[in-house]
């Protein structure tokens, strides 16, 4: 190189702009290849279901599928409701309601985990928040753990009758899916 500083000329500018253009183009082509792995239109289309609650008597529970996930629907007994209501939110490992029908920061009181006027129904996504197993406790003979709710056999997480984590490795309460009562005994999930 000569000792004189070479002024960047028109050609340098064109090379720079040309390469930059090609690089941005190549990078933007990555997005379709990443996005194709996300849930497709047919998967998203299955996003709401109707459930008839009439056949579920007090103390019974049913499991329905929503978006490929099991949803626990339990008609709680009086004593199950009482034991969930009297828990102090301050003592819970996860103090948030985790209810998609409510704001994110609402506390995990029993009222916030259920629907006003339908407090006997607890409706949650039946997936342990630890590593995604299905907790036991839906069938009458199942092990329900120390708190009478659900017990995850994989790594021993224990949930209470409001589906809140009480003991074990799971970090969060089981999630309440978006749902609404369409009549006194029917709900729409999603």
């Amino acid at each position: 190189m000569s000792s004189d500083a070479i002024e960047p000329d028109r050609r340098d500018f064109l090379v720079l702009v040309g390469n930059a253009f090609a690089a941005v183009g190549a990078a933007s082509l990555l997005w379709p290849f990443i996005q194709q792995m996300n849930p497709d239109a047919s998967t998203k289309a299955l996003s709401s279901i109707d459930v008839d609650l009439a056949p579920v008597k007090e103390g019974q529970a049913i499991t329905v599928m929503w978006r490929g996930k099991p949803v626990f629907v339990r008609n709680r007994t009086k004593s199950e409701i009482e034991s969930a209501v009297k828990v102090d939110v301050k003592n819970l490992p996860d103090g948030l309601a985790r209810n998609e029908n409510l704001p994110d920061e609402d506390p995990a009181t029993d009222a916030n985990r259920t629907m006003k006027g339908h407090e006997n129904w607890i409706i949650i996504i039946g997936i342990c928040t630890h590593l995604g197993c299905i907790p036991k406790g839906q069938a009458l003979g199942d092990e329900r753990g120390e708190f009478g709710g659900w017990f995850c056999p994989c790594h021993g997480s224990q949930y209470d009758t409001a589906g809140r984590i009480r003991k074990g490795p799971a970090p969060r309460n089981m999630e309440v899916p978006p749902y609404a009562f369409t009549s006194d005994s029917k709900i729409k999930i999603g």
Binding site: P39, R67, G68, K69, L131, G132, P171
Partner: peptide, 29 residues
């Protein structure tokens, strides 16, 4: 299920990030 759910641990750092990664890996819910 258990191993892909490992990535949902990232939810403790940035809320929703872990879930987004897991759903991306699954191609569903």
């Amino acid at each position: 299920t258990v191993i892909t759910n490992l990535f949902s641990a990232l939810d403790t750092i940035i809320n929703g990030l872990g879930t987004a990664i897991v759903e991306w890996l699954w191609g569903g819910y």
